[in-house]
Design a protein around this nucleic acid. Sequence first.
RNA 1: GCCGACGUAGCUCAACGGUAGAGCAGCUGAUUCGUAAUCAGCAGGUUGCCGGUUCAAUCCCGGCCGUCGGCUCCA
Length: 623
Amino acid sequence: MSSAEQPMTLMELAKKQGKAKVAVAAKVENAILDLSRPAPENGVVRWLTPADPEGIEIVRHSTAHVMAAAVKELFPEARITIGPAIENGFYYDFDVETPFTPEDLGRIEERMGEIVRADLPITREEVSKEDAMQRFPGEPYKEELLADIPDNTVSLYKVGDFLDLCRGPHVPSSGRVSAYKLMNTAGAYWRGDSRKRMLTRIYGCAFATKKELDAHLALLEEIKKRDHRKLGKELDLFSVNEEIGAGLILWHPKGAVVRRIMEDFWRDEHARAGYDMVFSPHIAKLDLWRVSGHLDYYRQSMFGSIEVEGQDYQLKPMNCPFHIQIYKSRMRSYRDLPVRYAELGTVYRYEPSGTLHGLLRVRGFTQDDAHLFLRPDQLDEEIYTLLDFTLFVLRRFGFDRYDIYLSTRPEKYAGTLDNWAKAEAALKKALERKDLPYRVDPGEGVFYGPKIDIKIKDMLGRSWQCSTIQVDFNNPERFDATYVGEDGAEHRAIMIHRALMGSLERFFGVLLEHYAGSFPLWLAPVQVDVLSVTERQIDFAREIVAALRAAGFRAEGDYRNEKLGYKIRESQIQKVPYALVVGDREKAQRQVAPRRRGGEQLPPMAPAEFMEILRGEMDKPTT
RNA sequence: GCCGACGUAGCUCAACGGUAGAGCAGCUGAUUCGUAAUCAGCAGGUUGCCGGUUCAAUCCCGGCCGUCGGCUCCA
């Protein structure tokens, strides 16, 4: 190509290739570029469209700019800060005297629509940092951002009259932004720093098509319907009570049934897996936490101490020191190891009031905790077994999709490099031996050891971090937990700290949303409703209820003077897996007419036959 | 903890500077009914708590408690 010719832009190349309508940017040698940039001489480009993950990210980012443009027109006094693309959409933070109201959002969205319809070009220019400084009068946040940019050249983007400092890239014109919706406002600290000024953030979602946007809004509706706080109230499972205190959970009888079943299952399986159950008190001398190191590292998450007869006591934020003391209560031989102590231990942690959230974030909760004391040579096998056990437990609760993370040594760490290397290798080996895909989170381990975190995925594909397996070099050291080896000398034990469900409260909340309140049979608080059609069948219905209960099922009778449809509806709304209809016909035949929760009707059958169906369903993690 | 919104009957929600209303649930009665709501009547609230402004506050203002959306935090 001769130098006299005007170099062709990517946009022009896109036109030639018939891609101008769909392309929002181009990928050239791994760099994502605006279409206004020159096309490469060899002409090798990959066009990015809103259907590409990278393409939609650009659209989302540009939508944030369009929104900022609308905000600056309607609220010229608003100071602009940053506005990135995020999952499903974007946000933009503004510094305004009074935060935006929902009505403001409506006006902003309307103005955005006008900008989109006008299809204004979004232009890019490169200027020196000094020049850029002159271009943002009265925008202190932009000045601050500029000052922090190491390069001498920066890029500016313009939509209509709205100029923003931005790395880009952006879509070529505002008309390419289409399916979006402003969602809500929120406070957010400048640069995420709680010491800095609180800004007003506007969240929006944006998609490639209206259809995807609608699907996303439908998903949000579904999430709302499954909200464990709403279901907890509707199904009478639990409550939080202002008079008791924020973040403290009351388990109602039906919720308590589910919890008891979860606990029973947990205890049985742990006993089978070679764990010993222990119990420990809710408070202990403050000094214990000084020894464990929690006081130094995590004091801000602990409740204040309680003075008793001149001694400070502390509500426990963890169970580990207790288990260590049990371990230390006598001499341990290498033959005794591994020692596995498990406890459903209730702990109390101070969480800032603004972070509390139903069952998912509370101040008092029960960990399905265990501490394993091992010899170094047992680490590999133990972790492998533990991983297997964890996945088995999760599967029982209907979770068979997960993301696994291996967190390695952070900058600030306790223990020896040699131990860290061994522990990380053991964790890695176990994951690979189980053929589990995982991601490494470098430096994200706890100061006392590396860990495996398992994030389960629920029915809606949302991730929840519940299980954690942590190697701990710190506590055996601090508490001097040892065993006598074959050589007769004392050796330092290695500890594994692990929780499978994490917190029972939280796991129950996740389960509730996972199943949308429709618990599988084995967990359902009420498994069978027996419904009499008229009062003529009450005696027979009572008999059925008694028989079911005698067989170990959780059955309730509804003998009220109501129509069948009314009772069915109530049973359905309460998400009871089975309703047994008992009318004159059934009574005469000594049969029941089962109806499944979803509406499916089974043929009338003998009670014994129905119980066989129940038994066949008891070990199913989903229904 | 920070920013914003909210707090009215058991639940879901309405109304208003002049001491509040509906539906569902509850209770009573009638109805005896076949797979998602039978009808009628009755009862139910110091409008989260404390203080202030006002002739008068549930409504306006302040503080506290709690809830919600975020931020921060999360051993």
